[in-house]
Design a binder for these strands. Structure first.
Lengths: 236, 236
DNA sequence: GTGCAGAAAATCGTATACAATTTGACCTCT
DNA sequence: AGAGGTCAAATTGTATACGATTTTCTGCAC
């Protein structure tokens, strides 16, 4: 039995320094240190990591495959700025796959996996109590880790990678359209889901998961507000 | 021939000639003109398409994101050779998402969509009757197009892209582990699914879809037969 | 001051060059 | 012969160079 939460770093793609750059930028986007729409010029990225444009470009391209960066011909790469419609599709996709992943995970779950999930929950709660940007960023990551860990437990690497993409893009969407200060509301729901899993109530766990995703989405204000807000802000 | 359903999304990634190269190689893999394990050297690819290694490399990297090509550090790119375990995960993923996609598709389907699906079915049947490699390849593609079209109808671009990856990788798996001459057995089942959709029997359609996927998988011989068959072939 | 050439700067697209690593051949020694 | 070792060829990894495109900054006319 390959236990679930294994080390993730089976280098996804290549071998070069590209993964490091890609991961660093991805983390920055997911933790919201980089705002949607921010320009990521190849030279700047290259200088920042002390590599040539070649590698910087490769890393940006990699991120564009994940939907975290959008590359426009002859214009450059930008932190993705998902449209409301895209946001809806992301959450629709999560509603579509997460119950299935949950079922698969429960089918393979071990006591140590449950232990791991509980630990994650604790950590999440601890971070919620703390103040400061650093704690906030860690909390964002921890909240996603719950869903990612379930995917890892499911044992399906393909679904796991897909969930990684969806969770990362969700973070972008929440950064753009989230209303409440933090999506921390979900913490309790994570706990409920673990509880349902532990007591063997699979259907209830799936139900809770769907509600959980719906709650996150409900916190969004998905009205079209185009433009980065410069010119357009004055046209209003 | 432009592939079937709709002109896919906007430029997936970038703007250069990379997409053309990537798509050409992908088609070659999916249509099984390139066998799993075949080496794809950057120079060769570049020469073949009259571009520099830079673009060839980018195209190969793109395909590695889709799981159709595996890139090994300092060794080069090869047409992916999915392991039995990987194959199982691919089909598990399909069983996980396709019913949901089907439901979503039915929720949005229009009469013209149904017309389109029927046309695809007809084309598929026509190709089944024909003889020859060309027809066989077209049939392989047509069979996948049924699933892809459903994903397109669902209106969720993210799930559509995911399905494109899964269908392409499935083709690789079938090429490697398929037993019956052709997976054409699925043709009738496609028809049944359309029928169920048309008569509004959503649950039955999903049920048929699951069985259909199971049937494809059942035609595989997923026993470990490691190595490309050189050394190992003599050890037996 | 506004508007529109047109040039200059910046940035991307692609090719080429060079370093690093792997592969395979050949050659030697036992 | 067979094992092992060294060198040459081929291939990938990364950087740089150069052309193309976009953006920005002028400067001049109105």
């Amino acid at each position: 039995m390959k236990s679930a939460a294994s080390a993730m770093s089976q280098d996804d793609i290549r071998d070069t320094g590209v993964p490091q750059i890609r991961d660093a930028i991805r983390d920055a986007i997911v933790e919201r240190r980089l705002s949607p729409g921010t320009k990521l010029s190849e030279s700047d990225v290259g200088n920042l990591f002390n590599v040539s444009r070649t590698l910087a470009r490769a890393a940006l391209q990699a991120l564009s495959y994940e939907g975290l960066v959008s590359v426009e011909k002859n214009r450059g790469a930008f932190v993705a700025y998902p449209s409301p419609d895209e946001a809806r599709q992301i959450f629709a996709a999560r509603r579509l796959v997460e119950p299935g992943i949950l079922r698969e995970a429960v089918a393979h779950i071990t006591p140590s996996d449950i232990q791991h999930l509980k630990q994650l929950l604790l950590e999440e709660g601890r971070l919620m109590a703390e103040r400061g940007q650093t704690a906030r960023r860690a909390e964002i990551k921890a909240s996603g880790d719950f869903h990612l860990t379930l995917a890892a437990i499911s044992g399906n690497a393909i679904m796991q990678r897909f969930m990684e993409e969806l969770v990362a893009r969700s973070s972008l969407v929440i950064a753009l359209y989230g209303q409440s200060t933090v999506s921390s509301c979900g913490h309790a729901e994570h706990g409920d889901i673990i509880e349902a899993i532990e007591s063997g109530e699979l259907d209830r766990a799936c139900h809770l998961m769907l509600h959980h995703i719906a709650h996150i989405e409900a916190d969004l204000d998905l009205r079209e507000r185009k433009s980065v807000g410069l010119k357009e802000a004055f046209e209003l």
